[in-house]
Design a binder for these strands. Structure first.
Lengths: 253, 253
DNA sequence: TAGTGGTCTAGACCACTGA
DNA sequence: CAGTGGTCTAGACCACTAG
């Protein structure tokens, strides 16, 4: 026949379910609406609850659904675009940036960061914690590692830890010339701490953004930011706030 | 006591498992090594296979493990850095780029792309398919949408579809001045088609990179690329080939 | 053909939310 | 408190790979 060839390897049920639900979401539901509960949905589709959940997990990963324990499953709004790499590079903590510093300690960074900073593996560096929210929702947490040499004016241990010290480190950073920056993005999963701050469960998928700030040919600071993968679309360049509405799952059929 | 407070909400088993396995991977296994099979591992840890699999899925997501049906579970090499956004923007198809054009058709793009291109929703555009490999492994597939106005010299339908036409479109693109580009990255899941090309199962996590190429204030082309999230670290700027070895799961304990 | 990971089931219990 | 999603189990069968 002219139709598609007989599937010798039929698609798994959870995948068919995902497709069916995607179409239902596109046509019959609007943002914020509450779906029937998992047990009902499973019964309606004639599958086990675990199978249905596999499909829901996919859709949550794709940012189509939002599930909250004790509440229910709702249709998620389109992902928000969050700017992570501008055409014009700036130091973290610049006047207009979207981050809120919450804490700062002086401690040895992870080995990988120490290598990037070219500091000794046990050498303590300023570690600034920041968080970022959009539309009242937490979208990212960050650890910013600043070696002592980048902020020489800062007294070593006199300033108390905490928000005040975080601000002081960021303020000192602005004095340095910024030669350039480079970034990398990869998929990770939220640890217990980040998960709590991002209002997710441990293991939730996150986008890990590593930024290296360079001055005078050396790495002056390293930022490791953790963005909620379900709700965020990271933008680089002028894209900025532009809304794109495309299905993050391509070639559905 | 001075220790951590009693966990009124103990961590889930799969999470403890993940931690235990992570440590084992760090200390007792080397890249490429084969792990015991799932049934044995589950028995060894005294959990159901499904629970163990939940932990393995996490680790695969984080790029620590590689699982292949009929073969087994092996320790994955560190993620490869793939450059997706250079400091100096270039058109796709530039002499040195990492992509291999495979096909080209003239067809109406998805609505979202049509909006970006400012073409009518039913207006056909050149749609170039390309794929990208690193170290002999497929890492990404791409659909590049080029409106007719961007490559006016190209005969509309005379050139046959296929690789030759793809190359012709790319060649014509180079003639345009490139004013700038912007990109966005988000998490998605591989459709059946992409999954096959990327050698993954349907639903596998992918990083969706949307690039808009601008010339004369308009969008001259749009690229939608799908990268394997398990094996890739996307790099922007000079990071390029630099290897970073950090745990994509932060704050483990 | 033996052994692997992938899918699916039917059930249980738990943690959390909100009325 | 009832109802939700989150975790976990013990089992079955399937699809795939390699010897």
């Amino acid at each position: 026949m002219g139709t598609t060839q007989l599937e010798s390897v039929p698609e798994p049920k959870y995948w068919q379910l995902r497709t069916a639900l995607t179409e239902a979401l596109d046509s019959e539901f609007s943002v914020g609406e509450i779906l029937p509960n998992e047990r009902d949905l499973a019964a309606r589709f004639g599958v086990a609850r675990a199978t249905l959940r596999q499909a829901l997990e996919q859709l949550e990963l794709e940012g189509r659904l939002q599930r909250r324990r004790g509440v229910g499953t709702t249709v998620a709004p389109p992902r928000v675009g969050v700017a992570v790499g501008a055409e014009q590079h700036t130091w973290p903590g610049a006047a207009d940036d979207a981050w809120l510093p919450t804490d700062c300690v002086l401690a040895p960074p992870p080995a990988a960061v120490a290598d990037l900073l070219e500091t000794g593996r046990d050498e303590p560096v300023h570690t600034v914690r920041r968080s970022r929210t959009t539309h009242l929702q937490p979208v990212a947490t960050e650890l910013l590692y600043v070696p002592r040499r980048s902020v020489p004016a800062l007294p070593a241990i006199d300033t108390p830890s905490g928000t005040a010290r975080a601000r002081a480190v960021l303020r000192e950073l602005q004095r340095l010339p910024l030669d350039g920056q480079d970034q990398s993005v990869e998929l990770g999963s939220a640890g217990a701490e980040d998960a709590r701050e991002l209002d997710r469960l441990p293991g939730a998928p996150v986008l890990l953004v590593t930024t290296r700030f360079c001055t005078a040919g050396r790495t002056a600071a390293v930022s490791m930011a953790t963005y909620r993968a379900d709700t965020c679309r990271l933008t680089f360049g002028a894209f900025g706030g532009v809304e794109i509405h495309h299905d993050p799952q391509r070639h559905a059929s």
